[in-house]
């Protein structure tokens, strides 16, 4: 038995790991864990499709005049960007639930006790979740032509960008909500209370123009509204939206930064209380 010290340097010589390597490792773990859980893969792809078809065709009859532009005359077409936002929301929620699981299973402890900056942890986890959410949102675009989405390179590129931004903001928001929590039940309560209404009032199901009073105000204050509007204009160029595309993109980008900063601040608190 040779000694281990001979072959490997003592930790005092180990340099700071920086941000990229730990963030990459945490990101990779999210991806690997996802595709090893086949039920998760199936559930997240199938359920929005089901929602889109069932909800979309159900509402189509009662909402026959809800189409918001010449290229998205049917409700199925109107509902399509909302369905994409829903996929992204579901995946973001699921992946940030893993944060609570990591904490309860003790995995997070070993990350917190490693010489890793908190921004690397936030970045790795959020980018991991956002990658999964965005990938599924983009995969769902395949059904676009069925909903009357015109196919063009610029439209697809812009849609992918918007989906990535929505994925990032929702995942970062999920991170900030999940970090202080120790039970997935409590997280579910917040999901029902906050995240589902966030989606319902984002213009996904019914247009902002049709709402009035306090409902309209809620929708205007909802950051996801701007993401869904941006997605609608990139999928259907020329669709009528409440705000112009640059405004929608700017608000969405701003919210990405805000949610990331919130996550970073929450993860950076060091306390006198147990971390897990």
């Amino acid at each position: 038995m040779a000694t281990m010290t001979a072959a490997s340097p003592r930790s005092s010589q180990v340099q700071s790991p920086g941000i990229l390597l730990p963030a990459y490792s945490l990101w990779l773990r999210e991806i690997v864990r996802f595709y090893r859980q086949k039920a998760r893969v199936a559930g997240v792809i199938a359920s929005p499709l089901l929602f889109w078809i069932v909800l979309g065709s159900g509402f189509a009859h009662s909402f026959s005049s809800a189409g918001s532009g010449p290229t998205s005359g049917s409700y199925m077409g109107y509902f399509f960007p909302g369905a994409v936002a829903m996929i992204v929301l579901f995946t973001a929620i699921f992946s940030m639930m893993s944060l609570i699981q990591d904490r309860n299973e003790g995995f997070l402890l070993s990350v917190l006790a490693a010489p890793v900056s908190r921004s690397a942890i936030v970045l790795g986890k959020v980018l991991g979740g956002a990658t999964l959410a965005a990938a599924q949102g983009v995969i769902f675009l395949v059904f676009g032509p069925l909903a009357g989405v015109p196919v063009s390179a610029s439209g697809v590129a812009l849609s992918v960008l918007v989906i990535a931004m929505i994925s990032f903001e929702l995942t970062a928001m999920g991170f900030a909500i999940a970090w202080p929590m120790d039970s997935t039940q409590a997280f579910h309560a917040i999901v029902n209370l906050l995240l589902i209404p966030l989606w319902l009032l984002s213009g996904s199901l019914f247009p902002l123009s049709g709402a009035s009073g306090w409902l309209r105000l809620c929708m205007m204050l909802n950051p996801l509204t701007y993401g869904v509007e941006a997605l609608r204009s990139s999928l259907y160029p020329g669709a009528s939206t409440q705000f112009p595309l640059p405004v929608n993109l700017a608000v969405t980008a701003g919210f990405c930064l805000l949610t990331f900063a919130a996550s970073w601040a929450i993860a950076n608190r060091r306390t006198h209380r147990p971390a897990a």
């Binding site: 390597l21 490792s25 299973e105 003790g106 995995f107 402890l109 070993s110 490693a114 010489p115």
Partner: peptide, 30 residues
């Protein structure tokens, strides 16, 4: 960076292999 820690409760990722767990841990230490 100078301390190795073995917690009372398990802190492994059970969906990863033994080597993947160790590789991840190594990345956290640069």
């Amino acid at each position: 960076s100078q301390t190795g820690i073995v917690f009372q409760a398990s802190n492994l990722d059970i969906k990863l292999t033994v080597t993947e767990n160790l590789r991840h841990q190594g990345h956290l230490y640069g």
